[in-house]
Design a protein around this nucleic acid. Structure first.
Length: 959
RNA sequence: GGGUCAGUAGCUCAGUUGGUUAGAGCACCGUGUUGAUAACGCGGGGGUCAUAGGUUCGAUUCCUAUCUGACCCA
């Protein structure tokens, strides 16, 4: 280990090819190559099969095939890998098939950008852009033509996704994740596409698929309904207007307000809205049944306002003189008819719990076509879902005043019209949080359209899907426990799932609908399977190019193919069927249990994949697709702030790997409590490196001192020294602790345990003590072999225990140990049983306490300048009772445990005396011993060393 | 605005049903060793347990509010 000249009296100093510094960034790729060449993943599967291991299925949540992986992806995959490697070492068969989510708008949007010649997009994807150029040329199209056939667009999307997947895959593999990288699952695989379609078919067959008119977030630029996940909230300035709806029947008004005399003047209910353009679709005015409403006499007639907000509202209308002439509860106003401010329509006052008194007037403009709550309250009152706005965001031709106008341009015109009609009481600007399209960043509208839903509250048999989902949540185990509450709350409030989209790059809704009635074909289930078979062969294109007559025959005259595609969340949500059920190695083979043992994703997936998977599974097989759900937080910077390009606090996994190696990223992942947000920063990574070095150097010491030792040299446990047997007890405890942390997925506690073991147990205690035997006793002596036997068990166990986290380092150490095979194949080390383990532990607990006290006393002497190294000290320990017995049992070997030259034990009141040694120091073993100088031939040696070098060697029993 | 969660030494984490001076590792300081040496041993300093109230004989631990941050939703 050092380059110093050899000592006159040699000690057993050994070397190891395991260097102090890992140089991981450079060397890890070589290790990866070895794993690949040795086909470790395949080897594991084969071995598991031979051993008939039980399966543990961790189903991969597919990342979206767009963009390079970021630190969150890396952490997610590393956590999965740690779990699977530890489960495998615990005796499970752990196949892991990584996946990618391939359909959907972000990819379609990328292609769209290329079609529209976006310069940055072209720079990033020149090959695909070249195809677009070539296509236009080959088909005689203008070089700026943006209307290209859907089939061609889908082809490009597919190609784009494939490129992205390869990029991400390289980065994932580099992390050291063991997986079936050659056969991942892609939601765009033909077979998978077919099975997604089949999942939809099953849900229809089970009666959960329903057609509805419903307001949905609609992006005018996309020309499509947007899923919740595609909506972003941003601040927007809107016109906030107060509009008077004149009361039609004054007698009814009087009655509602307890018969008050309402006189000759007009009366109006006043609403407040930030979306003037929705007024043409107004069908009602909602009040809260429990609120108190004032009837107020003003210069602008009688006004109805909620009591709490009346004053603020009147101020807004510049009305000073006013008098409250009557009050009534909201439910008294129910049914009162109002005149629409500019259309020939009378609308009722209705009651709804959604009305608040936070802002506005306490009376809510209700347009079922343009708002979810409006729609829901409208269902109750059977209001018309009359939607005047077309796909492109313009009013349809039959709309009075605004036909052909876009809703945004109509806004000021509505206000002007209201003013003209004397219905406008106030017009202010309001900045508020408003939904925007995630792609276009433009404001969305709410708009009723024909969509397909998975109904949450439709009774099928005795139960709704919501009931089933609730039961499934109950049956699931959550890590951490609060995941249950979160998922529960979401299921409870989850509206019907809108699964239809009007997009190009997506799995089609493969149904035939009647041209007149829009009903699904009565043979849908059967027809769908026919379609699925074709998709299996040719992909989703098989549906788009299908001629309905091929399957329907004469019926084709009455039916047409549904043009919608399926919400991309449904794709990944179906993988418990489309992937787990389909792949033999992932299949537990028991339809009555969840398909997977574990799903593990970021906490955002409670709303996403956890939920979509739960719903599709409940709607198809009636239970959850997972037994356990594990969630991790998001990665934030050192200050706990989320990462963003603009803040410049993004840590890229590729950069960490290239600088410090993947094992550092793995150790960082394992070190943090991932149940909350997870921090990363330069300092944190620096600290991670520090703790890595401690572990690495411990391994280096162990390996070096085993380099002249083979398993054949091992002594039977019964012949080991007392201290060594105790060390094996501590090893067993360590292994037990660590494996239980693995089982509970509490890796950060595991890392602490690893550190404690390496630093406290080994570095500061066991290894420090046995250095004397390792270095100074004869190489093949009993005392030294006893220590090495122990080191062998420690190292063999430690390497396996480290491997789920520090995979590369463990692999390297495995090689240095000259072990056969690979560290990941096999199980935790079977440790020899130690008799009297409890007795040993109890005794050494006492011994170590005394030792710690002695060290403090020695330190005091050292500070005084009385002595330097602890071998320069001689201690006398006074003790009684069991402490005395424990120390006394070690006899003369107590000094080795104390690492002092002398250690005497005397009965009496507990005390420790420390003195500087008066004897000479042995040149070889550094102990201070009276015998030094007594051997004529070797005047600088003690008798112990002389005996170890030239005689029969000393005998050790305890330490 | 609503739901879920977090806030203990510079950093990563412990802290058992509320109970004597709140622990560990790393970092830092001092020191020893020079046979784990860009390593290892020994010792030490460092926290009003986010803030403010409350319950209690007693709260880091229970309750409420506030602040900060994360995810989701509106």
């Amino acid at each position: 280990m050092s380059n110093k000249p050899a000592n006159k009296y040699p000690v057993n100093l050994l070397d190891t090819p395991f260097p102090m510094r890992g140089d991981l960034a450079k060397r890890e790729p070589g290790f990866l190559k070895q794993w690949e060449d040795a086909k470790i993943y395949q080897q594991l599967r084969l071995a598991a099969k031979e051993q008939n291991r039980p399966k543990f299925i961790l189903h991969d949540g597919p990342p979206y095939a767009n963009g390079d992986i970021h630190i969150g992806h890396a952490m997610n995959k590393i956590l999965k890998d740690i779990i699977l490697k530890s489960k495998s070492l615990s005796g499970f068969d752990t196949p892991y098939v990584p996946g990618w989510d391939c359909h959907g708008m972000p990819i379609e949007h990328q292609i769209e950008k290329l079609v529209k010649s976006d310069k940055e997009a072209i720079k990033a994807n020149p090959a695909i852009h070249a195809q677009i150029v070539a296509y236009r040329k080959a088909n005689g199209l203008d070089e700026k033509e943006i209307h290209l056939p859907s089939s061609f667009i889908r082809e490009l999307c597919r190609e784009y996704a494939a490129i992205q997947i390869e990029r991400q895959k390289v980065d994932f593999i580099r992390l050291g994740v063991l997986a079936d990288w050659q056969n991942p699952y892609l939601t765009m695989n033909f077979k998978t596409e077919a099975d997604i379609v089949r999942t939809m078919g099953k849900i229809h067959h089970n009666g959960y698929l329903v057609k509805g008119q419903k307001p949905v977030h609609w992006c005018v630029d996309c020309g499509s309904a947007l899923a919740e996940a595609e909506v972003e909230y941003e601040d927007k300035v809107s016109a906030a207007i107060d509009v008077a709806f004149q009361v039609v029947d004054m007698a009814a008004l009087s009655a509602a307000f307890g018969g008050v005399n309402v006189g000759e003047q007009t009366a109006s209910a006043v609403i407040w809205t930030t979306t003037p353009w929705t007024l043409p679709a107004n069908q009602a005015v909602s009040v809260h049944p429990e609120f108190t409403y004032d009837l107020i006499a003003t210069e602008k007639g009688l006004l109805i306002l909620v009591r709490e907000l009346a004053e603020a509202a009147l101020k807004r209308y510049d009305i000073d003189a006013n008098e409250v002439i009557a009050q009534a509860k909201g439910d008294a106003l129910n049914g009162l008819l109002l005149q629409h401010p500019f259309l020939a329509r009378q609308v009722p006052i209705i009651c709804g719990e959604h009305v608040t008194a936070d802002a506005g007037t306490g009376l809510v403009h209700t347009a079922p076509a343009h708002g979810l709550e409006d729609y829901q309250v409208g269902l109750k009152y059977k209001l018309a879902v009359d939607n005047p706005v077309a796909n492109d965001g313009r009013y349809v031709s039959t709309t009075e005043f605004f036909a052909g106008e876009t809703v945004w341009k109509a806004n000021p015109k509505v206000v002007a019209l209201l003013e003209e009609r004397g219905a406008l009481l106030a017009n202010k600007k309001l900045e508020h949080s408003y939904p925007h399209c995630w792609r276009h960043k433009t404001p969305l509208i709410f708009r009723a359209t024909t969509q397909w839903f998975i109904g949450m509250d439709k009774k099928v048999g005795n139960e709704t899907l919501r009931d089933k989902a609730n039961r499934a949540v109950d049956a699931t185990e959550f890590f951490p426990a609060w995941g249950r509450a979160r998922l529960e709350a979401m299921i409870k409030n989850s509206p019907d799932w809108c699964v239809s989209r009007q997009r190009t790059w997506g799995v089609p809704m493969t149904f035939f609908i009647h041209k007149e009635t829009a009903e699904l074909h009565p043979r849908s289930t059967e027809l769908l399977e026919e379609v699925a078979k074709r998709i299996e062969q040719e992909g989703i294109e098989a549906w788009f190019k299908l001629d309905a007559t091929e399957l329907l025959g004469d019926d084709a005259a009455h039916y047409e193919k549904l043009k919608d595609t399926i919400d991309v969340w449904f794709d990944s949500g179906s993988t418990h069927f489309a992937v787990i059920e389909q792949r033999e190695e992932l299949n537990h083979g028991d339809a009555n249990r969840p398909a997977a043992d574990l799903y593990l994703e970021g906490s955002d997936q409670h709303r996403g994949w956890f939920q979509s998977s739960l719903k599709t599974a409940c709607a198809t097989v009636g239970h959850a697709p997972y037994k356990q759900l594990l969630t991790h937080g998001f990665v934030v910077d050192g200050k706990g702030m989320k990462m963003s390009k603009s803040k410049g606090n993004v840590v890229a996994p590729q950069q960490v790997i290239n600088q410090m190696g993947a094992d550092m990223l793995r150790l960082w992942t394992a070190s943090t409590d991932y149940s909350g947000e997870v921090s990363i920063s330069d300092e944190i990574l620096k600290r991670t490196t520090d703790s890595y070095r401690r572990v690495r150097n411990t391994l280096r010491f162990l390996l070096a001192n085993l380099s002249d030792f083979t398993p054949q040299d091992r002594l039977p446990v019964s012949e080991l020294l007392t201290l060594d047997r105790y060390a094996l007890v501590e090893l067993a405890k360590f292994q037990h602790n660590l494996t239980s942390f693995y089982d509970k997925y509490e890796f950060h506690l595991g890392v602490q345990e690893i550190h404690r073991y390496c630093a406290d147990e080994l570095g500061a205690f066991y290894l420090d003590i046995i250095k004397d035997r390792l270095y100074t006793m004869a190489a093949g002596s009993h005392g030294r072999r006893s220590a090495q036997t122990t080191l062998w068990y420690i190292t063999q166990a430690l390497v396996r225990l480290l491997s789920p986290i520090l995979s590369f380092t463990a692999h390297e150490a495995w090689d240095a140990l000259k072990n056969e095979g690979n560290v990941f194949v096999g199980e935790w080390l079977a440790l020899p049983e130690i008799h009297e383990a409890d007795t040993l532990q109890a005794a050494f607990a006492l011994i170590r306490e005394v030792r710690a006290n002695a060290q403090k006393d020695i330190e005091l002497q050292r500070a005084e300048g009385v002595l330097g190294s602890s071998l320069q000290a001689e201690v006398t320990i006074h003790a009684q009772g069991e402490v005395f017995q424990a120390l006394d049992a070690l006899g003369d070997e107590l000094k080795f445990i104390m690492i002092t030259s002398q250690a005497h034990i005397q009965p009496g009141t507990p005390a420790i005396e420390v003195a500087a040694a008066t004897a000479e120091k042995c040149e070889r073993c550094w102990h201070y011993h009276p015998s030094v100088g007594t051997i004529a031939a070797h005047p600088t040696l003690c008798t112990r060393c002389d005996c170890n070098l030239h005689g029969a060697g000393e005998t050790r029993q305890h330490a």
